[in-house]
Design a protein around this nucleic acid. Structure first.
Lengths: 199, 199, 199, 199
DNA sequence: AATGAATGAGATTTCATTCAT
DNA sequence: CATGAATGAAATCTCATTCAT
């Protein structure tokens, strides 16, 4: 008799434990034993819920993606495209400890993606989703006359996404140079430029 | 006297072997054994040329830095600030296979920097050098009247650097979305904006 | 539930294997692999039962200490101080193969103590225990009028303990010179001197 | 053309370097490389002067023995047996840093002797020499009427030697308990006993 | 004779994985 | 289902030893 609900719940528990460790101590500290201990189980349980370690790591990555998307989806709708875009992008910057953790996790997975096809696939699926979201908000903002830009919106999308990820890395590596305030200002200025037709 | 061996040369040989592995199989695959095998030596050789594994990895990182800097220093001088800046930043994008390799290596080290203080230090030293270079070129361009911007040049510097790194990651992870042409265009547009006072 | 294994028992098994190797081949031959093989397990087991190699070695040392103490505690009580002291000290001499083994192990740990603080601590704790025991018995003997000595009992204690350890080393290194009989006689004479007020 | 003198001299140089390291950092720190560096040569030299590492270590042990004997032989002669004996035994106690180093070296070799026949042989040869020396001095003292003892002089010899070695170990392991003063007093009292016929 | 390059074995430690209970 | 015992591979580092120059 299989307990479908328990099974999914237990998986989630373990994935969250993995995430906590990665956020707290880095991706290399996320050993199977450490994850099991953090989740309050023994080594062996993982056998029942995951094929192997990679399965756990990928699940943790997807869970991270889901959190970001959910956070955005959970916001009150009906606001202008630019306001929503502003919120979405800021939410993706490591402005507080929690999000710094998320960014660290993200960077760890970048490296992994370069040599692990499965990780790369998961990474791409998520990136595509985020790209569509941003592109959609830009389109809405353009239709509403919120932005004036001669540049193709697809290109604007790419630049915004690149900027967010670039700023995220730099904030984590060079926190002295890039405080939270400055990060917000840098991204804010970029968005303002869209409004004023700066590009 | 003794067996005639170019000590520095042998070090470089090993560092290059390490680089090749990191580029080909990722930073986690760069074990001491793999590096020794790639270099065509036995495990033990590394003792002669490096204090420990960290020493090798940091040397590989610095070697990468040096290659980039050397490439820029080798260019004909005397050109305007913006032209030089354009060249410098484009050179840091993964526009061909060689530079894609460099970027891959760079990304691998980002992750490592998050948990290894020594790596972080090396990373920071190099980043600071690049930042000063960019800031200097922007200053020269401003003095020459090449750019008109209301934004503080330090902020412009940070955004350009973040953009370059963000585009680099995205190009490696999502090459279908970001061809070399598009990458060049995205960065080019950003630089043009500075000229026209877009910000 | 889980495989039924006596955790403490398995630890003891491994510690005894370590002891056997130290006795047979010396403390330097007691590598983790050798211990695991001697115990009939694979390398990895030790992870389950010990933190690291030092943990095993210290456990072996403490196990040795415990054997000696237990042996003494197991003796019938109620005898005079001198009789008990005689028994205790004789028991610490390598008069038979078993005790020769214990002495060999003890000597191996002396050397280790000189460079390993943790080992030294364990060594000291045990030595202090033995010293108190001897001092106590001497005190009891003095009160009962069994010994007459002008020397401070603390000094007598130190000399007796030094003599026991010195004789132990010499017996192991120069067995031809120091047979079991002679060892007993040498220590016995020393104790007799206390009775007759020889010092 | 072999340079006999140089050869012996070079051997001695290296042996002394080995001794310095053992005294300073313990017997385990005395690797071939460390010894070569300490002596100011390269690894390879040792090939020319020693068969292998064991050869070096044994030479260091013999050198230690020679130093002790030489030191005693160098003293002004013509004194009474007991005075000479007092000097000899005190000289073998770790009363200052230099002699503490010597004792540490000695203890390290004890452990080694238990499993290395060659080391044991060297150890025994030296011990026998020292034993004869002590026995001889005791004999002279007895003839001169300096000591009155009912005990056989061979036994007295063994006990004195055991006491010296036992005190040496204890001083190194438990320096808080056994200061230099106390060590001197303990051995001094033992010698006095011989004079007064305490045994 | 002397150097130091190079080897390869072996020591400790860490881990993902398997499996009996 | 769940446990945790056990395995065995692999990673880093250290060393004695060999040998071309």
């Amino acid at each position: 008799m299989s307990k479908i609900v328990d099974h999914a719940g237990r998986r989630e528990e373990i994935v969250q434990a993995a995430r906590r460790i990665i956020l707290r101590e880095g991706i290399e500290a996320a050993t199977i034993r450490a994850i099991a201990r953090e989740a309050g189980y023994s080594n062996g349980v993982l056998t029942h819920y995951f094929a192997d370690k990679d399965d756990i790591m990928l699940s943790a990555l997807r869970s991270s993606h889901r959190r970001v998307t959910d956070r955005f989806r959970g916001r009150p709708a009906g606001r202008g495209g630019m306001a929503a875009l502003h919120e979405l992008l800021m939410d993706n910057l490591p402005l507080d400890d929690e999000r710094a953790g998320e960014s660290g996790l993200k960077i760890g997975f970048w490296s992994r993606s370069l040599t692990s096809p499965a990780t790369l696939r998961a990474q791409r699926a998520r990136a595509e989703e985020l790209r569509r979201l941003v592109r959609g908000l830009l389109g809405a903002a353009a239709e509403a006359g919120e932005i004036r830009t001669s540049e193709e919106l697809g290109d604007v999308t790419e630049r915004l996404l690149a900027l967010v990820d670039g700023l995220s890395v730099h904030r984590l590596l060079y926190p002295d140079r890039l405080g939270a305030d400055r990060l917000e200002r840098l991204l804010g200025t970029e968005l303002d430029r869209l409004r004023t037709g700066g590009a």
